[in-house]
Design a protein around this nucleic acid. Structure first.
Length: 533
DNA sequence: CTCGCGGTTGCGGTT
DNA sequence: CAACCGCAACCGCGA
């Protein structure tokens, strides 16, 4: 029987370095590239309009690129298993190909589709191309569990050798396009999806493989910059991004991590002196690999309860604090500027994410990291299930990072790289004319100064919702208590705790009683939907 | 079991 | 101005 295939795009929205697309093309008399609009995402996911736009742009560009290799992209809507059942018959399909996806919802979805394919006699070919390595191999090499430190990941990865080389663009596509293509399979607009394009922010980072490769090229041409890149030294509050902003493209797979990796390797080869992981650009790809790997095998990775690597902390429930944080109304200009940039533009610098995440959780507001994670999930163009959860655990000192006494100052941190507060002036325009002396702490400005600046704190701009210097030590104490109350590591139940440390009496309890937030109450399905893809 | 070390990105001070 | 210290002290890891 002649091979007739479907390549199912989910992530991996590209034609370069796409091994499963190649597998679909090989010796196929017809190869249909499809993308399924899964209604669960708009229903249950936190997808803000900027990311919808990014997705549609990426699909548009993918179609354009597929045309160049004699093909087209077919958009279909519905539950994947239903859609595919239909298409298998309609197109007389013998082979289905797709890229491996390690997220929980994707795993369920794909298992269901694999079953369907088996029933229909359709061969399934899946390839790893969203991560540098097959995360399963990393776990295997680590003895069956995920590495829990970056160091350990580096060791395991070095045992695995170099990641696979990128594969070429397929050259032998045969896709028959019926006359009803435009009517049935064309790429929808935001309006088709019930969205209003007017709600979008400025389009600073257009979606798509073409843009991704242009951007990669532009970054890699700055060889000196690449070779001296140290992530912690880049600026969170520059007016132009101080990092690559390749993350949204990696998230959707518009850019292959392996393509980027080998571009870096080339540059490093030609320049003996260059930075190294964890701070280098290569190091950033390894962070991604690290968090994808842990996320792929850790139960309930995106929540606190029943997450074996997450310290249980009785966070406060405080909807007012949460809302003020989300809407950029905390009264701390640096924090508010970052949140405004996030909501409007969909990308903020990594250290800016640190600042606002620390502020929301252990630093100031003592609200659960899960709440912050949901907000990031909605607004970030690069919202990536594993990375988002992992970084929120990191910043809230719930996992990976434990030095909870290192607290970012919402006042001092931004000053290091933006003394004049130009970033604040841009993203909190009401503070535009506040004198530099007060720009990070406008509530300290004399009333006359506030009047002259056209910004009265308390009416034009909020008063700070907490006193950072007072709340910080209290929260540190609460963190210490939560750590002390950790159950002993459950080896085989014989050791009862860690001796003296656990015996120390409970210290301060914090100002308000701790209504611990009940997390993980959502249905599994709802959780799986969020933030994926 | 204990110990010492290191941990991508704290702050505010001093040298 | 970069580098170091004290602050008070966390964790996981490996020896």
């Amino acid at each position: 029987m002649a091979k007739r295939s479907i390549h199912w795009f989910r992530k991996g929205l590209r034609i370069h370095d796409n091994p499963s697309l190649i597998a679909a093309c090989e010796n196929a008399e017809d190869m249909k590239p499809i993308f399924i609009l899964d209604p669960w995402f708009p229903k249950n996911g936190n997808v803000g309009i900027n990311r919808w736009r990014f997705l549609l742009q990426s699909l548009q560009d993918l179609d354009t690129n597929l045309k160049k290799i004699n093909s087209r992209l077919f958009i279909v809507q519905g539950k994947p298993v239903d859609v595919l059942a239909d298409l298998f018959k309609k197109w007389n399909i013998t082979t289905l190909t797709y890229e491996v996806d390690t997220e929980p919802y994707a795993k369920l979805r794909d298992a269901e589709v694999d079953n369907l394919a088996r029933e229909c006699g359709v061969e399934v070919i899946k390839c790893v191309s969203h991560t540098l390595y097959d995360t399963k191999r990393i776990v295997e090499k680590n003895g069956g569990s995920a590495p829990l430190t970056y160091k350990r990941l580096q060791t395991v990865v070095s045992m695995l050798g170099s990641p696979p080389k990128p594969v070429p663009i397929p050259s032998n596509c045969k896709t028959s396009v019926s006359k009803d293509y435009d009517q049935k399979y064309a790429i929808p607009t935001l309006e088709d999806l019930g969205k209003d394009a007017k709600d979008c922010g400025p389009c600073l980072f257009p979606g798509g493989e073409t843009e991704a490769l242009i951007r990669l090229d532009r970054m890699m041409k700055k060889t000196n910059w690449v070779c001296t890149f140290e992530k912690p030294k880049t600026e969170p509050n520059s007016l132009e991004p101080s990092t690559t902003v390749l993350s949204p493209y990696l998230k959707f797979g518009c850019l292959s991590p392996r393509t980027m990796y080998y571009r870096l390797v080339d540059i490093y080869k030609q320049n003996k002196k260059h930075t190294a992981p964890p701070v280098s650009l290569e190091g950033q790809l390894l962070w991604r690999e690290f968090f994808y790997t842990v996320g792929s095998v850790t139960p309930n990775f995106d929540q606190m309860v029943d997450n074996p690597i997450c310290i249980q902390i009785p966070w406060d429930t405080n909807v007012e604090f949460l809302e003020a944080w989300k809407q950029g109304k905390t009264g701390f200009p640096f924090i508010d500027a970052i949140m405004n940039q996030l909501r409007q533009e969909g990308w903020i610098h990594h250290l800016a994410r640190h600042s606002v995440a620390c502020f929301l959780t252990r630093g100031d507001l003592y609200v659960s990291w899960e709440e912050g994670k949901k907000v990031f999930e909605e607004y970030l163009l690069d919202a990536d299930w594993s990375l988002n959860a992992a970084n929120w655990m990191w910043l809230s000192a719930s996992s990976f990072f434990f030095q909870y006494f290192r607290v970012y100052s919402p006042i001092a941190f931004g000053k290091k790289t933006d003394k004049d507060g130009n970033y604040i002036r841009k993203y909190v325009p009401v503070l535009k004319h506040m004198p530099t002396q007060y720009i990070y702490e406008p509530w300290t400005a004399p009333l006359k100064v506030q009047e002259k600046a056209g910004c009265i704190v308390g009416s034009d701009y909020p008063k700070p919702i907490v006193e950072h210097d007072k709340i910080r030590p209290i929260n540190i104490q609460r963190m210490a208590t939560a750590y002390k109350n950790r159950p002993a590591k459950s080896d085989s139940g014989k050791s009862q705790g860690k001796g003296q440390k656990r015996k120390t009496e409970q210290t301060t309890q914090g100002p308000k009683g701790k209504k611990s937030k009940t997390t993980g109450k959502n249905s599994k399905i709802t959780d799986f939907i969020k933030g994926g893809n």
